[in-house]
Structure formats: C-alpha cells, structure tokens
Computed example of a mutant assay.
Amino acid sequence: MMEEGILDEVVESEEVVSADADVQDSSVDEFAQIREHYESGVALTDDETDRIADVAVEYLRGILNLFGETHSSIDEYDGDEGELILDVSGGDLAVLIGRHGRTLEALQTVISTLVSSRLKFYYPIVVDIESYRSRAKNKIEQMAINAASRAKSHGSSVKLAPMNAYDRRLVHLALRDDPEVTTHSEGDDPDRYVVVTPVKL
C-alpha cells in the first residue's frame, strides 16, 4: 500500500540521518550548556531555543528532500505548552500526512528521535503539515468538551474512540480546568482511549 511504503521510507530516512548524527556525537558536546539549563528548569534564552530549532529544521529539511519537497517552507513557533512547532507548507504534502495523520505521526517520531539523539536530551517538538494538526486539535478539543457535557448530563463516564498519545493529551488538557469532570486513559496502544468521568458533587 502507498501509505505503508511512505512509512518505510520515513523509517529508512531515520537510519540514514542517524548515521550522520552518530558522527557528530563523537565531537564536542555543543549542547551541554543548553541541556544543563533545560534539565535544571532554567528558562532557555532565545538564542538557545533558536539553536534547537535549527537542529530540528535541519533534520526535517533533510527528510523533505528525500521526498523531493525541496521548495517547502517551514514555519517555527512556540506551542501553548512550551513545545516547538514546525509547520511545513507548500508543495504536494498530502502524502506526508497519510490516512488519519499516521504518516505525519511517523515523521514526528523520526524527527523527535533524531533531535533528542543530537541534543542528548528530550525537547518537545511537534511536526505539522499545512496546519493539519492545528485543525485536528480544534476538532479534538470540541470532542472533549462534548464528551464532558454528556458525562455531566448523564451522570456516567464517557469513553472516547482510541487515539494516539498526542491526541489523548489534547483531551486531558482541554478538560483539565473543568472541575466537574476527570479524565484518564485506559487500554493498550494502539487501542488506548480516554475516559471522561463526572465528579460526584
């Protein structure tokens, strides 16, 4: 299938770029100070976050090139939870989103793995394409609000459809300030789902 072929290519691209990362890892640890600041809770400077963004964009650009997308633009901005968001636009990018965003999930996993390997610490990065995640985020947040309303009106828990970890987190965040419901996840991936439960007042 086309989507499976694309996923295979993304995984193979990780191996190619990882080899390059291994070579760079043998040199001076250029991100030691940034890692120390981040892990100690010190706010990173604009220059430090720019350096992290440069690494992420470098790897993302390399993978886009493998797909022949040499003229796509990559916008960088900060998310609501402090994550770095890279939004790709321009070109024929639908194939990199895939059915239900599965190829995009694989692409994000590759980028996160490569960047973490290079930095030697985990920094939250979200890869988006043509604002696909942004549109999906709005739908998921509305779904969460609707589920909370049903849970409160019926007085019973509401189980949402299985979601990936990123989407489940969006549900938890969307309802965390609602004192009338609680949320938790159940099941095992890829069938793990969120349960919205009304608080008994």
Score class of each variant (00 low, 15 high):
Q24V: 13
G82K: 03
R99L: 11
T113N: 15
P179T: 03
L119M: 07
K159L: 11
D47E: 15
L44E: 09
E83A: 09
S18P: 00
A53G: 06
I85W: 03
D87N: 15
T113H: 14
E105K: 08
S157E: 13
P198N: 05
V57G: 03
A32S: 10
D25T: 07
L104E: 03
G98M: 01
G90R: 07
Y166R: 12
I111V: 15
E15G: 06
I74H: 04
A56Q: 02
M2C: 04
I85G: 01
D20A: 14
M1H: 13
L44Q: 08
S131C: 07
R176F: 08
D87Q: 04
A32M: 06
E39H: 08
V127M: 02
E186R: 14
D178S: 07
V10S: 01
N146C: 06
G91N: 01
L119E: 00
V11Q: 11
K152T: 07
Y132H: 11
L114Y: 02
V196G: 00
D8N: 13
R133G: 01
P124N: 08
D189A: 13
V23F: 13
S13W: 00
T103N: 10
F31L: 06
D8T: 11
L104H: 04
V55M: 00
D54G: 09
V17L: 15
I34Y: 02
A144P: 01
R99Q: 13
L104M: 06
Y77T: 09
D188P: 04
D128N: 11
R61H: 12
L60Y: 03
R135D: 00
G68L: 06
T45Y: 05
G41L: 07
F67D: 03
G98W: 01
L60E: 02
S131R: 15
H71I: 08
D46S: 15
D25E: 14
R61L: 09
T197Q: 09
A43N: 14
S185T: 15
R51Q: 13
S131Y: 06
R61K: 15
V11W: 11
D46F: 08
S13A: 14
H71G: 09
L201N: 10
A148L: 04
A174Y: 04
R61A: 14
A165D: 13
K152I: 12
R169V: 06
L107E: 00
V23M: 12
S27L: 13
L93E: 05
P198H: 04
R102L: 11
E15C: 03
N146S: 13
A19D: 12
P162T: 10
E12N: 13
I6Y: 04
L170Q: 03
D29A: 09
K200G: 05
V23H: 11
I6S: 02
R51V: 01
E39V: 10
V199N: 10
G101H: 02
S89R: 12
L7P: 02
D8I: 11
S112I: 10
T49Q: 14
A147L: 07
K200P: 04
V127S: 00
S72N: 09
M163N: 02
L84Y: 03
R35F: 06
D47I: 12
G98V: 08
S27V: 09
G79T: 05
P179Y: 05
F67T: 05
R192S: 08
S157Y: 02
I6D: 01
V95D: 05
D78F: 06
V195W: 01
G5R: 13
D80V: 08
E39M: 14
M1F: 09
L84H: 02
Y122A: 12
D46T: 15
L173F: 11
A151D: 08
A106D: 00
S134C: 06
